[in-house]
Amino acid sequence: MLDLRQIRKTFFPDTPNEVQALCGIDLLIPEGTFAAIIGTNGSGKSTLLNAVAGAFELDQGGIHIDGREITTWPEYRRAGLIGRVFQNPFAGTAADMTIAENIALAMRRGCRRGFGLALHRTARAEIAERVRTLNLGLENRLDNPIGTLSGGQRQALTLLMATWRRPRLLLLDEHTAALDPKSAAQVAELTLTLIRQEKLTALMVTHSMQQAVQLPERIIMMHKGRVVRQYEGQEKDRVRAPDLLAAFDQVRRREQLDPAVAALLAKQYG
């Protein structure tokens, strides 16, 4: 379970370039929920994910995972609880190392790393077995540098690495955005399979309204560092991509109105 309490972050404070990236976000993602975050560019989606992952310190607020406060934990320590897949397929793997070595690194996520051999026989067999489940034929190429693979293959492996040791929270930052449509569909399908199979709590940032509608159980809409709307339960099941786009337009129109008028309209019409 992810619990965000009043988290705030301002970049370049007290300068002409000041950006209020997160403006007091409260969010509760229950155990086993797959939620998608949608929003325009600069709405704070990726910043929110990075805040949870520990890429920077918050100005205010608290982050809790399964009741543990991790607000002051450094990024590498949070990795013991959090699995991550980045937007850039090349960001989640070490290109010059082999597929097996990359996965061996992920196998020790959250554990003490000692002087044992990273790729002993048992580990190799386990890696080959799990990689075979991806159906990409990579189990025969475990000793190839991961940099020789396509973006889609690397992203599928990154996803496997992020979920190798069941994470308490899976963060997916537009992880299909940089892939071709076929690879994107394969990775999206794999994402759904892994999340359902392991009953993972997951937070996915996406620009694809189709993905937002089809994959998760909950949609969180962000705008200018705030959560402006959430869809869950039957409302989520009913919502379609055009509805989300219309909701975006509504948010933008409300933004252009005088705040007092916008508040009145919001009260009247929801």
């Binding site: 990795a79 793997t93 070490a94 190392m97 061996a104 554990c111 790729l119």
Partner: peptide, 23 residues
């Protein structure tokens, strides 16, 4: 070729990935 050695090699290759793997 050990766990720590593999993490050391990955650190030079991709620090962001290494942090995401808890190193």
């Amino acid at each position: 070729l050990t766990h720590i050695g593999t993490a050391l090699r990955a650190t030079g290759d991709n620090p962001q990935m290494v942090r995401a793997q808890g190193v």
